[in-house]
């Protein structure tokens, strides 16, 4: 199963990246080498095997829904990290024309 440059382009869109033509060519080549190695997994019979999503047996770790860390100072600090902001809001380019 080979990956084409077109598929790599599609993945780039899904992943919200924008690669140059050179990068696309390089990643297509490297993808194929890596995927060929990954195809080792096809040697295994896996029909009756349960998937492991997590190694722990913990389930539904719940806590009371209480407001914490809501002090103004912290909100100010969080917003200080924003690349662009105005009047206590994050500023973004127009989403709807």
């Amino acid at each position: 199963m080979n990956v084409s440059k077109k598929e790599v382009e599609h993945v780039t869109t899904l992943a919200r990246l924008a690669l140059t033509e050179e990068e696309k060519t390089l990643y297509t080549e490297q993808f194929n080498v890596i995927l060929e190695y990954i195809h080792r997994l096809n040697e295994l019979k896996l029909d009756d095997i349960e998937p492991t999503t997590h190694v722990q047996q913990l389930k539904n770790v719940l806590r009371e829904d209480q407001a914490r860390n809501s002090e103004k100072e912290l909100l100010k600090k969080v917003l200080e990290e924003a690349p662009d902001k105005e009047k206590g809001y994050f500023l973004v380019p127009p989403v709807i024309e």
Partner: peptide, 26 residues
């Protein structure tokens, strides 16, 4: 990011990600 996006993308999930989770069990 691209490899992971590919492994999770529609049509490849079973062939890659789900298979990997099963191998993790082994």
């Amino acid at each position: 990011i691209m490899l992971g996006t590919y492994a999770l993308s529609s049509g490849y999930y079973d062939a890659y990600y789900l298979k990997a989770l099963k191998v993790r069990t082994l």
